[in-house]
Design a protein around this nucleic acid. Structure first.
Length: 654
RNA sequence: GCGCCUGUAGCUCAGUAGGAUAGAGCAGCUGCCUUCUAAGCAGCGGGUCGGGGGUUCGAAUCCCUCCAGGCGCGCCA
């Protein structure tokens, strides 16, 4: 009796193979599962998967690698799903998969991921824009990375909660409130009446206020008064601040929704203050001896935390005037995320669409019985400049005895977005002589220096619309607009993902506005054209998609009937596409999504090459045509999954 | 000063839990729109993987060192 082990994806195929290989070699040599590494071969002539264990083994056993390899080949004969094994070079053991059965298995399991969740609940926190001005391209990088992580984790089967922390009582909001009250003299009613793009208005105002406050001490004192009143709550200033920050928050959510990015919950700093989360955390920190009251040196009168691994370094958590620093609040907030504070916020709906509600925290009971937080693992998407502070927060968790949580509190760091000199001249900023010398400039909300997110997306939509108009003049205006919006979103998302997170992204309009080559629109174009082949097929034959699927699923075309070139190209496409799960796992493990972006791009290149070389609908031989339909159906499904992970939508036409 | 990161083709970047001949895109040059959308495809040229040393059967990848650049090290957030 033969048991056929069905594997859903390449990830599972490799896992099964590794287990079987380890089992068979164990009796002969001292190897375990970890030694069995199956890697893709550099070239088709070396088979599909390679084992290089002969080299280390030969060294250990003081013999030669080829001898080991040839014995291994004997031991591994008849491996399930493997057609043959041979030896190449100095001792590589190359496996040739049984292509026919591999393809059939993978085709039958399309849409299933062979991955399994490992966590109870994962919290992904991203975006976190101060609600005092319009979002800029730096914020887009954060949101795109965070959203893609969330999508990958969901694909893996994890339960995810996406949070977007709103610092609605911080100095940045206060600066804008100060400007509205003292410089612009706007009443609450006037603000409510103000026209669109309030976030743009505040962008300019914030830059003005920053300059003004820098030059005017009295104004700084007045700002401090306002800050205090806002933090205390229950004051006209607090209401004013709430109105301003909420209005800008709505603008941010609208911007992000253009990129298909949304959230589950918006925890606000005002709620943290109102519900005294910090006071609770403070008591715990004192109790655990994690912080102590300093009576000497520069930190006299402060509560400080000793930093581990660094000599004589201490971080102030509570200032000598009794107020808590940013890190302190963040420790309290982090405790809440893990469900360690013994308390939750109240919540109310903030925005609702047909299938999703975004909840916002409240400091007062609301009557809604919903709860958030309490994750078993937490990802904080924050740029690399905050590494030091993130380390302090984690240390706070450790000092409280939460070792588990400390190790599961992950700072997903990424390099900042800067502006190229060319971009700077495009947005017409006046630069100091000193700044002109630099090769790039850091985005700065305070200086009003940056490319606003909506401006970028607007320009992309405009450009995309012009193209759509040219290519599909017959479409309804609304349809054209939708397509242009989808293309613009894809361009932004791919652009933000294609660079490794540790590389400084120097923003350049020409690059961001490109729709050709390694870009989001190229990926969409590939998917649209595949879709179009199926449309045309239905048009010409009258066979519906469902009927077609049935036909191709049941069809069995012997690969021996293909030309050698086609067999090679077909196999390359199939085997590459099957590695999606591995790519996703790798992306999650390394928090590196440029690889997944690249994978999708490479997949598109293979797909485009394939159907250019092997026309589908024009093929006269029915069985061959069905086989090609099956192949591109397979590729199309995987591409759609990959695009879904990247958050890229596929337009109807392009 | 201490810590983290980066240096790969003219430009922008992949590749770094060691593996077989270093890859893309852009830009440049050649071809391909009576054949499923040319946002495409096929091809050409372009490299001392910052320098030097070391470990290894094998190094862009690991270690040391030097050079160049970025970021961080607030009783700001």
């Amino acid at each position: 009796m033969i048991f056929v082990i069905i594997t859903i994806t390449m990830y599972q195929t490799k896992k099964k193979l590794r287990e079987e290989i380890a089992e068979r070699l164990k009796g002969e040599w001292p190897v375990n599962l970890d030694d069995i590494e199956l890697v893709p071969t550099p070239d088709e002539k070396f088979g599909d998967l390679a084992l290089s264990l002969a080299f280390p083994l030969a060294k250990k056993l003081k013999t030669n690698p080829r001898a080991i390899a040839s014995r291994a080949v004997e031991l591994l004969s008849g491996l399930e799903g493997v057609e043959r094994i041979d030896i190449a070079g100095a001792g590589y053991i190359n496996l040739y998969l049984d292509r026919q059965s591999f393809f059939e298995q993978k085709f039958r399991n399309l849409g299933k991921s062979g991955l399994e969740p490992e966590e109870k609940k994962i919290i992904v926190e991203h975006t976190n824009i101060n609600p005092n001005k319009a979002a800029h391209v730096g914020h887009l990088r954060n949101a795109c990375l965070g959203d893609t992580l969330a999508r990958c984790l969901r694909y893996k089967g994890e339960r995810i909660e996406v949070q977007n922390y709103i610092d609605d009582t911080g100095v940045q909001v206060v600066d804008v409130v100060f400007g509205l009250l003292e410089l612009e003299k706007k009443s609450l009613a006037e603000i409510e009446k103000m026209a669109d793009r309030f976030d743009y208005y505040c962008w300019d105002l914030y830059a003005r206020v920053s300059k003004y406050l820098g030059e005017n001490e009295q104004a700084r004192n007045r700002r401090a008064e306002i800050l205090k009143k806002i933090e205390q709550g229950n004051s006209p200033e607090a209401d004013y601040a709430q109105l301003v920050s909420r209005r800008i928050l709505r603008a941010h959510l609208a911007t992000m929704s253009r990129l298909d990015i949304t959230y589950d919950v918006l925890p606000c700093e005002s709620s943290i203050l109102r519900l005294k989360f910090w006071e609770k955390a403070f008591a715990r920190l004192k109790e655990a001896g994690a912080i102590y009251y300093s009576t000497e040196g520069e930190t006299t009168g402060c509560w400080v935390m000793k930093l581990e691994g660094e000599e004589e370094r201490e971080k102030i958590i509570v200032r000598s005037d009794g107020t808590v620093t940013y890190v302190g609040k963040d420790i309290a907030y982090q405790l809440w995320k893990f469900g360690l504070l013994g308390q939750d916020f109240y919540y109310e709906p903030f925005a609702t669409t047909s299938d999703h509600t975004i909840w916002i925290s409240s400091g007062e009971p609301t009557g809604y019985d919903v709860h958030f937080g309490g994750g078993s693992k937490v990802y904080n998407v924050i740029d690399v400049r905050q590494s030091y502070l993130q380390k302090v927060v984690v240390q706070g968790l450790k000092a409280l005895g939460y070792e588990q949580e400390a190790s599961r509190s992950i700072h997903f760091s990424y390099e900042m977005v800067a502006l190229s000199p060319r971009s700077l001249s495009e947005i017409k900023v006046d630069l100091s002589e000193e700044d002109k010398e630099r090769s790039f400039l850091e985005v700065s909300g305070r200086k009003g220096l940056g490319v606003k997110a909506d401006d970028l997306i607007d320009r992309l939509e405009e450009k995309a619309l012009a193209e759509v108009d040219k290519r599909n003049p017959g479409l309804q205006p609304a349809a054209k607009k939708l397509i242009a919006a989808q293309i613009a979103a894809a361009a932004v998302r791919y652009f933000m993902l294609k660079y490794a997170r540790n590389s400084l992204l120097i923003f350049d309009f020409d690059e961001a506005l490109n729709f050709e080559g390694e870009t989001g629109p190229y990926l969409q174009y590939t998917a649209v054209r595949l879709k179009s082949i199926f449309h045309k097929f239905e048009e010409r034959t009258g066979i519906t998609g469902l009927e077609l699927l049935k036909t191709i699923a049941n069809s069995q075309f012997s690969l021996a009937g293909l030309s050698p070139e086609e067999a090679r190209d077909f196999w390359q496409l199939v085997v590459y596409g099957s590695t999606l799960d591995e790519e996703v796992l790798r992306a999650i493990a390394t928090l590196e999504f440029s690889g997944l972006a690249k994978f999708t791009f490479n997949l598109c290149q293979k797909i485009n090459g394939y159907y250019h070389r092997y026309p589908v609908l024009a093929e006269k031989n029915h069985e061959l045509r069905t086989f090609r339909l099956k192949t591109i159906y397979f590729a199309h499904e995987i591409l759609n999954q990959a695009l879904g992970l990247l958050g890229i939508q596929v337009p109807d036409k392009m």
